[in-house]
Every structure is written in structure tokens, then in C-alpha cells.
Nucleic acid binder design. Structure first.
Lengths: 213, 213
DNA sequence: CAAAAGTGGTAATCGACCTTGTCGGTTTCG
DNA sequence: CGAAACCGACAAGGTCGATTACCACTTTTG
């Protein structure tokens, strides 16, 4: 009875372990997705183009991702996750400041992350919309998290007497829409005004939404 | 020398003129597009499916539209045009009312049009995003028109002393984003609250944006 | 009533893309 | 140094959708 090799064998090649080279290829595919999804658009980007740009064989593509859609999802998670993290930590550090300063700092962190690269902005605001039910669900999940963040800011403002208590759920969605549309317009439209103007405008919007009425 | 028939020949078939039957087929294709784009989504809808649903042959499809994208564009123009018209005429009729009433009436007209049918909302807010450069340009054109409408409201408010004069271009984009995101969330999410709540929220947003600062 | 003119549906062609199997080259181990 | 294992590139199979060519049918006209 021959011994059955249950564990997958793995050797080093070119001085790198199998995991290292897998991670390498995955990262190159992510970069290719960033470039192609972010400039040519998701529908115009085939798996072959992605692999050519990343210098990865199509065979290896399927070793890393079940399909093209999953690469888009991974990119979107990375972008949105970083933006969310930046916004959250900015907010945490500004807890003792005024409402306007808290909003300005949080918005600035979010904006400078998502629009630090025009391709990020395009993927986050355009290419990820209306792709498939799975992607839509993913997007809704992130929007819901953002909505919770805004609601938390509102609750804190009520605690500190900067806003009157009421249901902020609709307001939060409206504010998210305002942020996204304005950043999208600004980023994809050539960034004709300084980023501080956009921050100032969104701060005005946020403060107005929380304090009026 | 034979006479050259410069005018296109056209006979009646089934008691209808060529134009009538063309218009008929075109309208049936528009309805099929509304149904399929609005429920299955644009990427999942092939020309064959459209033709089957509309009882139109693929040959006649190309007689009416250069391609699938142009049907989407025609639908989007119809939806957005109607919404825009409803909003504009509502605004015109409310010129002597207070700022809040003008905003509420205009927003209500816009919302009740775009979300009178969930498929309209989905096409207007989701399926039309990120399809191709041509569609994106089309979308930007409509957004720019909407922005002008909001700016006009702001200018009128300044005239009447309801708002302080400043540059409202960024504010207009932010407001449009707020409207779209909230209506989208509300319409696609099951409409769990009455439409008047959405109108009230967006009125609050509009008034706040124009009067604060 | 027969032939011509025009119309609309069917089906074939064409190409693109996704997916997987195979092969040659390379590296490590005995 | 030889053999075996392993990796990655190439390419073929298969599916699906877009586009167009052809033909059968309908209506009119002489």
C-alpha cells in the first residue's frame, strides 16, 4: 500500500516560496485591474487583457480569482476599506473638537483617500455600479457601513448638544450621496478647484444637515 | 431613360402605414427595454432577449436602433426628460411660494416621476452608470442640466432675500447627489417609509444647503 | 389573375471571450 | 549528474451574442 501524500508538496522556485509567488501574481493582477478598470472601464476589460497587463497566464488567473467580477470586488474592498479606515481613525482623533472640525477632518480623510488616484475614484463611484447582483449587494453593504458611521457622528453631536435628537437614517443616506456625487464630479471632471474647497463645501453640507430643524 | 424613384416607396400593410408600424415596433422595443433593463439589468440583457420580449425580429431592431446601447439611451432620455419637465413646471407654478414650499414641490414632482415605477428608478440610477463613454457623456449632460435647475432655484432665493449670495455650483452637485442617493435607496430598498417622509427630508436638505452660512 | 415590389422572420456566419488541458522548460533532491 | 517534480505559457474546445444574408409571404398593380 503506497503512502498517500495528503499534504500538498511545495518547493521554492527562483528563491521564492509558492505562497510568495502566488501573492506576487495576485498583487500584479490587482494592479492590472486598477489600471484597466480605472481607465478603460470594467465592461471593456477582458480577462485576457488583465493577464497580459499583469504578465500572468490565464491559468493562474483562475488560481487566484473565481472570475473577473471577484477581482473587481477585491479592488473595491481595498479602496473602500482604506477610505473607511482613514475616515474612522480621523474621527476618533477629533472627538473633542467642534462639530464642524470633526466633520471636516473626517471628510478630508475620506476624500483624500478615494480620490488620491483618479482610477480609484472611477472604480469606487462608476465601475462598481450595476455590474451584477453580487456586486450590488457588496456595494450596499459598504453604503450601510458608511451610513452607520454618519449616524454615529450624529448621535455624538446630539450627546454634546450640537444637534437636536431625531431620526438621522434618511439624512445619513442623503449626506453619503452628496459626498459621493461631489467627489466624483470633482475628481473625474479635472479637479478644477482646490480640494479644500470641496472639503469646505461638504463640511457646510454636513453641519447644515445635522443642525437645521 | 427610366424614371428614378427618389422618394422612398411605402405601402400599407395590415391596414397600417410603414411609419405606424415602425413606431409600433419601436415602442414595443422600448417597453421590452424598460422591463428587462429594469429587472434583469443592462449587462444581462441581450438583443435577442429584447426582441423576443417585444415580438420584433432582430432585423427590425437594427432598423430602429444602431445598437443595444442606443435603446438604453432612448429610455434614459425619456425617463429623465419627463422627470425634468415635471420638476420644471412644478417650480414655475410655485414661484410665489416660500423657499421650502418651492423646494418641496419641485422635489416631489421629480421623485414621483422617477420612482413611479421601480424599473424607472433602477434604470435611471443604476443601469445607466458606467456602461460606456457615450452613455457616461449623456448622463453628465443631464446632470449638468439638473445642476443648472438647482442653481436657478438658488439664484431666485437670493433675489428674494431667502439666501445669501455665493457660488452655488458645488452645492448644486451635492444636492443632486443627495436626491439621487436617497431616492435610489428608498425605491430599490422596498419603500419602507411613506414618500412624504422622503420629500420632507430632501426639503430639509435643500433649505439647509441654501440658507446655512 | 399574374407578376412585381416590398416586408419581415429565420437562420447562418462571424468573432470574442471564458475555461481547461497539455507541453516544454526549469529547479530541486538523491 | 540524473531523475522527478513543478511551474507557467500556449492553444484548443465550447458557449454565447452580434450582425447580416436570404427567402417566403403579403399586398398592390396592370
Amino acid at each position: 500500500m503506497p503512502s498517500v501524500p495528503t499534504a500538498l508538496p511545495s518547493r521554492d522556485y527562483a528563491g521564492q516560496s509558492a505562497e510568495q509567488r502566488r501573492a506576487d501574481r495576485r498583487e500584479r493582477l490587482m494592479q492590472a485591474g486598477l489600471e484597466l478598470f480605472g481607465t478603460e472601464g470594467y465592461p471593456a476589460t477582458s480577462i485576457e487583457k488583465l493577464c497580459a497587463r499583469a504578465s500572468v497566464s490565464t491559468r493562474n488567473f483562475y488560481q487566484e480569482f473565481p472570475g473577473r467580477e471577484d477581482l473587481l470586488l477585491a479592488l473595491h474592498s481595498r479602496i473602500t476599506g482604506q477610505a473607511f479606515e482613514a475616515a474612522s481613525s480621523a474621527l476618533a482623533e477629533l472627538d473633542d473638537r467642534s462639530l464642524a472640525e470633526r466633520i471636516r477632518g473626517t471628510v478630508r480623510a475620506y476624500i483624500s483617500t478615494t480620490s488620491s488616484d483618479p482610477r480609484w475614484a472611477r472604480i469606487a463611484y462608476v465601475e462598481v455600479v450595476g455590474v451584477s447582483p453580487a456586486v450590488e449587494q457588496h456595494r450596499m453593504g459598504w453604503r450601510s457601513k458608511a451610513s452607520e458611521l454618519v449616524t454615529a457622528v450624529a448621535a455624538r453631536a446630539v450627546e454634546r448638544g450640537e444637534a437636536r435628537p431625531r431620526d438621522f437614517s434618511l439624512t445619513a443616506v442623503a449626506f453619503i450621496g452628496a459626498v459621493n456625487e461631489l467627489v466624483h464630479e470633482w475628481s473625474l471632471g479635472g479637479r478644477k478647484v482646490p480640494i479644500e474647497d470641496v472639503c469646505a463645501e461638504l463640511t457646510r453640507v454636513g453641519v447644515a444637515l445635522l443642525t437645521v430643524d
